[in-house]
Design a protein around this nucleic acid. Sequence first.
DNA 1: CTTATATAGTTAGGTCCCTAATTACTTTTT
DNA 2: AAAAAGTAATTAGGGACCTAACTATATAAG
Lengths: 176, 176
Amino acid sequence: MTNHSNGRKQEDAIPSLVQSQRQIDRYGLNVDAQAVLVAARLMEAGAKLGHAAEIHFARFGLSTGRYRLLADLEDNGGEVLPSQLAEHLGVTRATVTGLIDILERDGLVFRRASAKDGRQKSVILTELGASKLREMAPEHFARLEAMVGLLNKEERSVFLDLLGRVTQGISALTDE
Amino acid sequence: MTNHSNGRKQEDAIPSLVQSQRQIDRYGLNVDAQAVLVAARLMEAGAKLGHAAEIHFARFGLSTGRYRLLADLEDNGGEVLPSQLAEHLGVTRATVTGLIDILERDGLVFRRASAKDGRQKSVILTELGASKLREMAPEHFARLEAMVGLLNKEERSVFLDLLGRVTQGISALTDE
DNA sequence: CTTATATAGTTAGGTCCCTAATTACTTTTT
DNA sequence: AAAAAGTAATTAGGGACCTAACTATATAAG
């Protein structure tokens, strides 16, 4: 009984360089296997992190999106328009509507119609919402810090630089 | 008309160091802002990459998961058990069932009951499935390579090392 | 000033993946 | 051999985020 069924053991599915090279060779392509490996590993890491983040935020009764919305509200004085939230979070307005629905139901936020523009509705952080952020902050930030704890300051700086350039490159997948 | 509504412009929502520092200061925590920034940027990048990958694979009528399943099949001689696929892909068996359902419907794969174990059903790559992989390979790998094109060989190597260590650290979010 | 166009938020419906429970076999224990 | 425990695949239901279509209000053009 060492490694079975469940598919979420310590290190499932880490793509290897030989695996990438084999795939490329099969079709006789002139592509750098290491480059492909970087792409594959980053996708793997992104999926894993996304899943872990949901588990992390679920401790506090939130999802990743709902936490980010609350944090953005607090970062902007406690009152922001849904369309601004969508832009800040990088999600659609439809998604923001859904996030607000649940946050409002839970009393962490409420909506108020705008006086100047009848189409707009401000989203406002409640005291309960603010205290939720306050309560979770120590553990939340400590865990984030621990996550990158295997990198020293210098390495983190290098990582930020490289990650930034790879992030720019992501558009290569969607261009054209 | 420069930057409105849609929330998916060139560079929405890039978290900054001052923003991270501000959040930490608000609660008087003793946490490294750069570390928090790395975590935030990686989450951002992961989400962005996941979304871009779906768009990329949709060109070929596939999703990320269905492509990975096909590729894993081909990497393993064209016949693999669902439970093995789940392990290789790092997803649950329930998810694999759904992926196979669609691939089978589209004729890229078929199921066959196992002779030795009545519970098992092999998944087998069809000729259509193999040719789908063959057709998409040039564009697929070229785009992956382009994605990391802003990094040279040396930098890619460093990035792989650092990413690997951060990936290990992800468990800090889920531990306990 | 009325018609056309743009914008804010929402709703409806879809995709991806998940967890928990179910069904059908197989292996182990008594 | 019968009962219990384990394993393989599936089904049922849910959460997150998406696109496209809709409603209501605001602005621009004829």
